[in-house]
């Protein structure tokens, strides 16, 4: 900025500077938007490619110059995909495992979080710290022994093996405990004086107040069942108990080379669709759950 002592020149300078500033502002705004929109296009492109490929005929898919809009929309790919990967069965299996494990997991989490947040007992803090400590250990370390354990229980190829080992999540207990702690203790003491039982108090007061956290846990747990791959592959290869991600990967073992990609993409779209639905309607809870884990974890 060139400075001058002359008053009128100073004013003129100021005007010039401010107009230079607005030009600079516009240029930087344009750059910011260009960058963001370019990145957004890159982020969204795989989804777009999945959708348009899923309705193309195989000959159209293989054109050397690809079409960015399908010439004809071939919904039969979806029918083929559904049959080829037996998606109906896999869908029901996954839904069953997801619902049962979410329900049981919620009961266990609520009871434990209540004990940690409201009750007094010897060794409470030490136990809670020990639980948090286990979160540092990579899950793969548990898998080796758990594989042998469920084998010796005779649980291989069953729904039990997909549900029971993952019912307790220290992270969810932690999340809910933090939420319970925010509810004033006076409420609990007042309820005690009135002779309300713990369970009734939990059901009537704590659970309604902590509902957003419980919804976040439910969504994350259901998404976990939908996306789980490694454990089901190890312990449940019987088609009767297979989950959707394994079924998808097994039905289309080749991901490269000369395969019918449109049908494969249709299957991927079918598997992705429920996740998007959940995201659109429950975005608030997902983002809250994830970001809270981020800031406090």
């Amino acid at each position: 900025m060139s400075s001058t002592n002359h008053v009128t020149m100073h004013e003129r300078d100021m005007r010039r500077v401010s107009s230079r500033q607005t030009v600079g502002k516009i240029v930087s705004k344009v750059m910011v938007y260009t960058f963001l929109i370019l990145m957004a296009v890159i982020i969204i492109f795989p989804f777009y490619w999945m959708l348009i490929s899923s309705v193309k005929s195989i000959s159209e898919y293989r054109l050397s110059v690809p079409t960015l809009f399908p010439r004809e929309i071939l919904l039969s790919n979806y029918v083929d995909a559904f049959q080829q990967a037996n998606l109906g069965r896999l869908f029901l299996n996954t839904l069953y495992v997801g619902l049962v494990s979410t329900l049981l997991s919620l009961v266990i989490t609520v009871l434990s979080a209540f004990a940690f947040a409201r009750l007094e007992f010897k060794g409470k803090n030490a136990l809670f710290a020990a639980l948090l400590g286990t979160m540092m250990i990579p899950g793969e370390l548990f898998t080796i022994t758990n594989y042998a354990t469920v084998n010796s229980f005779g649980w291989m190829d069953s729904f039990t093996v997909l549900i029971v080992p993952f019912l307790v999540s220290v992270f969810y207990i932690y999340l809910l405990r933090q939420n319970f702690l925010q509810i004033p203790n006076e409420l609990y003491l007042a309820a005690k004086v009135d002779g309300t039982s713990d369970l009734k108090y939990l059901w009537k007061v704590m659970i309604p107040l902590a509902l957003p956290t419980l919804i976040s846990i439910t969504i994350l747990k259901m998404m976990g069942a939908w996306n789980s791959y490694v454990w089901p592959r190890l312990v449940a290869n019987d088609e009767k108990y297979q989950l959707i991600t394994n079924g998808l990967r097994n039905a289309f073992t080749d991901s490269t080379g000369d395969v019918n990609i449109p049908v494969q993409m249709a299957a991927v779209a079918i598997v992705s669709f429920p996740l998007f639905l959940v995201f659109i309607f429950l975005r608030k809870y997902i983002m809250k759950g994830v970001s809270r884990s981020g800031i406090k974890g």
């Binding site: 490619w49 998404m223 990967r249 991901s255 993409m265 598997v271 959940v278 995201f279």
Partner: peptide
């Protein structure tokens, strides 16, 4: 839009990426 990849199945969308990079 930027949050979208979080709610995807990494096996399933991996197959989409494979298709995008795949040569026949």
């Amino acid at each position: 839009i930027f949050f979208l990849p979080y709610v995807t199945n990494s096996i399933a969308i991996g197959m989409v990426f494979a298709a995008m990079f795949n040569m026949v």
